[in-house]
């Protein structure tokens, strides 16, 4: 818990320094007004009012609709269409299975995923794109609205740090929710081990693709889960309501690895079919390496 709350740990300086110059490129052409990294498909300039929304603490008071406040004495935020050209949605799985920490690592999968998400959020904000964060288990537990303000990074990090991973998960519903709310095309970065609700994951992928999102799946797995090097007699205490098993892991190592490989293959296949990115995030691999590898690959594909 204390580990999760150390916000300073989430931004890996090494990862950021190596990733900063790479940037995050939208693979597809996005709408936007800014000139620079993203070419807009629209002609002219247009920022249109979209709707009012009740003020919540943390909203920029500059977006308060003073007129409405004056008339009704209620705080409403004016929302506009397309505040920015690129929105990166960070979708973070906070299920109990993400709290596993293997023998080869010093941190849990969840921490690794949070750090990865924090770095990516920082990078996105740094290049003046917008980001939004959704932390989910069976439902969306934490939502950090889209923002393009780099100054919000601390807010994002503190919210990430405060998140716990101790419940079951329904990744499908989280993705479906996102698909409903994020109507504009953007990049959805999913951080999950995808151990449960595999069908929901595939369904979510299809919905996000239908919405025109680009999905990047960070498959967060511990080294132990990948290689299964355990020996001796082990009592495996199931998470998320799974049963406890006592067995000799070496005896079924081959079968387990086959099962695990099959899962990874299925997830990767689904991503490939949708032309999405699939990144195996081995928690024993330094964050910088995982992030750098992803960004390099992305840059090459973006050209």
């Amino acid at each position: 818990m204390s580990e999760a709350r150390q916000t300073d740990n989430l931004l890996d300086p090494d990862a950021l320094s190596r990733a900063e110059h790479l940037g995050i490129l939208a693979r597809t052409v996005v709408e936007g007004y800014r000139v620079g990294n993203h070419r807009s498909p629209f002609r002219g300039f247009a920022i249109e009012f979209a709707q009012h929304r009740e003020y919540t603490p943390g909203d920029d008071p500059r977006h308060l609709d003073w007129k409405v406040l004056a008339r009704t004495d209620h705080y409403y935020i004016k929302q506009y269409e397309q505040d920015t050209n690129l929105v990166v949605h960070l979708l973070l799985d906070s299920s109990e299975s993400m709290s596993y920490r293997g023998t080869a690592t010093t941190h849990t999968k969840f921490h690794y995923a949070k750090a990865l998400a924090a770095c990516l959020a920082y990078l996105v904000l740094l290049q003046r794109d917008a980001t939004a964060v959704n932390i989910f288990d069976t439902d969306t537990r934490e939502h950090i609205p889209r923002t393009d303000n780099l100054g919000k990074i601390h807010h994002i990090m503190s919210r990430l740090a405060a998140a716990d991973a101790n419940r079951r998960t329904q990744i499908g519903s989280a993705m479906a929710d996102l698909a409903k709310t994020a109507t504009a095309k953007g990049i959805v970065m999913l951080f999950s081990d995808i151990f449960d609700d595999e069908e929901g994951f595939h369904q979510g992928l299809r919905q996000l693709r239908f919405q025109g999102h680009e999905v990047v799946v960070f498959h967060i797995l511990d080294r132990d889960e990948i290689e299964f090097p355990l020996t001796g007699r082990v009592e495996f205490i199931g998470m998320e309501g799974n049963p406890t098993l006592t067995l000799n892991p070496a005896a079924i190592r081959k079968a387990y690895l086959a099962e695990m490989q099959a899962l990874r293959s299925r997830v990767k296949l689904a991503c490939d079919q949708a032309k999405f990115h699939y990144i195996l995030a081995d928690t024993a691999v330094p964050l910088a390496e995982t992030l750098g590898a992803y960004l390099v690959a992305r840059k090459q594909r973006g050209k």
């Binding site: 151990f195 511990d222 495996f236 205490i237 998470m239 098993l245 067995l247 079924i252 695990m260």
Partner: peptide
Amino acid sequence: QLRRIRWAATRFLAASLEKN
């Protein structure tokens, strides 16, 4: 000596165990 491990992927363990 029985080691106790909280394990995320027990689904696969159970499947492997059943098959073997």
